[in-house]
Design a protein around this nucleic acid. Structure first.
Lengths: 122, 122
DNA sequence: ACAATGAAACTACAGATGTAGTCACTGACG
DNA sequence: CGTCAGTGACTACATCTGTAGTTTCATTGT
């Protein structure tokens, strides 16, 4: 049921998740610092997101204010589960194991994660 | 530099990663148990993968034998890094934290990961 | 030698995606 | 009051993806 968000759209969402509501121009100003896109491109992405009801629009005089309609957390949960399911058979352990073996985990990372897990077991 | 592999193509790759080389028909036989695709669809996917040099072809008389040219591990590393970079700022901890908060981690999962980390620190 | 079979090659086609351009309208400015 | 700049709406268009169908060629059994 969760609407699909493409990579390009995701960059726009990140801006809105950081602060909202924003006008299209404000969003574009932020996005352009990351991606080399034109204002029109950002507007198109906002329209598509609005069409999918992933962002909401609120009229403000001549322009619109855009706000996310889905929580970043919910989105992350969805894509994370999907990712782990597709690539690691739904188990997180193999993912962590893989990252570790690929040297994507520093000693500090490991310490941080251990502490986090200790907290969780409270 | 790592060639993009689409979702559908990935399903085909999983079969080849399990066993290779295989003929197109053999691959399709496996894939069809998971996805409800026609033989032609699987052949198309194999062709696209071959065009991208993600699988290699070896003539065997009248037909071809297909084998993966990229290691599953390398592929996983690439997509995992990309995933963690895009969604969690490149840090694994927030990912684990997120999964934990979203109740995607069972107590068993946590124990397993802890043990894994302990091993790693050796 | 010929017809049926099976496999690769080529073609198809709609929907999603990335990346804009252009049009029309409206309020602000001179 | 006429012009311009900002804004949303609509249009564009090449690729990529998912999902096949059709054509062609070689092989194999009769």
């Amino acid at each position: 049921m969760t609407e699909r968000i493409s990579d390009a759209e995701h960059a726009v969402m990140e801006v809105l998740w950081k602060r909202a509501p924003l006008t299209a121009t404000e969003v574009a100003d932020q996005v352009v610092q990351q991606k080399d896109w034109s204002l029109q491109t950002v507007k198109t992405l906002l329209s598509r997101l609005a069409a999918k009801a992933v962002v909401g629009t609120e009229r403000d005089g001549r322009r619109f204010l855009y706000s996310p309609l889905v929580e970043r957390d919910d989105y992350l949960t969805g894509v994370s589960r999907n990712f782990v399911d597709r690539l690691f058979g739904g188990k997180v352990m193999p993912l962590v194991a893989h990252l570790a073996e690929a040297d994507e985990l520093s000693a500090d990372d490991i310490r941080e994660i251990e502490e986090l897990l200790r907290e969780l077991k409270k």
